[in-house]
Amino acid sequence: MVGRSNRPSALSATPGLAPQPQVTISPDNASVSAVLPTGESVTVLLHGATVTSWCDAAGNEKLWLSEAAKLDGSKAVRGGIPLVFPVFGTDKSHAAVAGLPQHGFARTSRFEFLGKSTSESLTPSTAGPSSSKNNAADLTVKLDFGLSGAGLDAETRKLWPYDFNLIYSVNLNRESLTTGLVVSNDGDKPFECQVLMHTYLRVQDITKVEIKGLENKSYVDKVDGAKTKTQPDGPVTITGETDRVYTTASAPTAGSGSSSESTSPGAPVTVLEAGKTVFTVAQDNLPNVVVWNPWTDKAKGMSDFEPKDGFRNMLCIEPGSVGGWQTLEPGEAYEGAQTISCS
């Protein structure tokens, strides 16, 4: 065929279709990343389905990740959003989880990447060509990850011999990040579990941080002998080691997940720095919030916490269901989610 100097070039995109989110798997098959056309991004490590990065359109990181965090699967990740399941902390008195490691096995298990999906509030067919810019801005990308009883290693399976399926979804849009899970009992005997999203938020100066939305709520103070206290009618401030489990709503109904059975969402937790709102954390069917900062001495004692003064730049706001036990009968499922919004 004779070449033509003025032949048309290949199309870079389908005409009329707004730019789409880009999803890539790392060359070593260790992580999955998604980037919106407007620049917002998220990275999820398959080890634990741990979110290790969440950036806004300008590339500003919203999560704190230790410089010494182990990303090779050798231990749980220090920072980001580790996933706690099926036990919060340790509980030697509870036979079903007595042998499990701190915070269970989900954060140290390798998840399977199940795929991605996108959604948008406008479509070219209904919005018209002039709406393409707004169309791109309204895109959301969802990444799904899975873990099941059959996928656990033999030793973990021996310690927790239940048939379950856990689907963990990470939803990114321009203004927020939502992480949610669905746990189902696929076996023939009931099991009890706890879940929590151990979110490390990045702040500039912890001494200038105030946390609102927990006023008058009951909490367990793990730094003070696990005493039950009530938060005064004022914001929470961090002035030393802090480890509190707040109850913000009634416990979910067994097998809940539908809108009629879920706990009603309470007021969101708002994080302010120097008087300005920097994060808003909303819970869906998760009745507890853990507020944690290791401060000076505890940070020094953790080998994977670097830099040692990094506690000044992080704050854990951790939605979960950890005040008791969620019992799932065969065939039942439980779901919960958090949505973190930036100012």
Rank of each mutant, 00 (worst) to 15 (best):
K70N: 13
S41G: 02
A76V: 10
T52Q: 06
E61Q: 10
A34I: 01
N29L: 14
L65I: 09
V35W: 00
G39W: 02
L71A: 15
L63D: 07
K75A: 08
T52E: 03
N29V: 12
G80V: 06
L63W: 04
A34Y: 01
N29Q: 13
P27W: 08
A49C: 13
S26G: 09
D28R: 09
L65A: 12
V44W: 02
D28G: 06
A69I: 10
T50I: 05
A69F: 11
E40N: 04
K75N: 15
A58Q: 11
A76H: 12
N29M: 08
D56Q: 03
D72N: 14
G79H: 06
L71S: 09
S33L: 05
K70A: 15
L63V: 15
R78G: 12
N60L: 11
V32E: 05
L65T: 13
G48N: 09
S26K: 06
N29S: 10
V35A: 01
V77C: 12
L63Q: 15
W54R: 02
A57I: 00
T52F: 03
V32R: 03
A68T: 14
A58M: 13
G79R: 06
N60K: 10
I25E: 15
T24N: 08
V35C: 01
S31A: 08
S66A: 10
A49V: 06
G73C: 12
V35N: 00
A76N: 10
V32D: 03
E40G: 01
L45S: 12
V42Q: 00
S33M: 11
L45C: 05
R78Q: 11
S33Q: 10
A58G: 14
E40P: 01
A76S: 15
H47R: 08
T52I: 14
V23I: 09
A58I: 06
S26F: 11
S31W: 05
A69T: 15
N29T: 12
A49F: 07
A58S: 13
S41R: 00
N29W: 08
K75P: 14
W64F: 10
T43K: 04
K75E: 15
P37H: 02
L36K: 06
S31C: 11
W64Q: 15
S31T: 06
G79I: 05
S74R: 13
S31H: 08
W64R: 13
P27G: 08
N60I: 07
H47Y: 14
V51Y: 02
T52N: 05
T24D: 09
S66R: 08
D56I: 00
V35S: 00
V51F: 03
G73W: 12
A34E: 01
E40A: 03
G73I: 11
W64E: 07
T50H: 08
A34D: 02
V42C: 01
S53E: 11
A69S: 13
K75F: 08
W64C: 09
V51Q: 04
L45H: 05
A30N: 07
W64I: 12
L36P: 06
I25G: 03
A68V: 11
P27K: 12
G73A: 15
T38H: 00
H47W: 13
S74A: 11
S66W: 05
P37G: 02
D28Q: 05
L36G: 04
V35D: 00
K75D: 15
L65V: 11
V51I: 15
G80C: 10
G39I: 03
S74C: 13
S66N: 09
S41A: 05
